[in-house]
């Protein structure tokens, strides 16, 4: 087992997610990219936990999953509400909260 590979995979996943968040307009895709980043972090946590032989990282990965689930619930609900009122899921259209 080479921990470096897991970490490298996590980094690649995270970068894909981050780039996705930055360049995509569709809120649904952004959402999925965020999930991708979270999972990348989870992967890193678990990998490091395994590497160090401790349980901390695994515990935190569970936490992250729970939070991510909660976030999905709230986020999707907001997304639905926005889509219903605006007929659009583009985040660039929802820019009312500005200066």
């Amino acid at each position: 087992m080479i921990p470096g590979d897991y970490v490298a995979l996590a980094v690649i996943l995270f970068v894909i997610g981050a780039v996705g968040v930055l360049i995509r307009r569709n809120a649904m895709v952004i959402f999925m990219c965020i999930e991708l980043m979270l999972n990348a972090v989870n992967l890193a946590f678990v990998a490091f936990a395994r590497l160090h032989g401790t349980i901390d990282g695994q515990v935190i990965a569970f936490f992250v999953m729970v939070v991510a689930a909660a976030e999905v619930v709230v986020g999707l609900a907001i997304l639905m509400a926005i889509f219903r009122s605006r007929r659009s899921a583009s985040v660039d259209d929802a820019n009312l909260l500005k200066y």
């Binding site: 968040v21 952004i30 660039d92 009312l96 909260l97 200066y99």
Partner: peptide, 17 residues
Amino acid sequence: LRRVQTGFVRSYALSML
């Protein structure tokens, strides 16, 4: 300074990154 608050989520995301 408040001009920075463009309202575009992705620019916020970029600045966070």
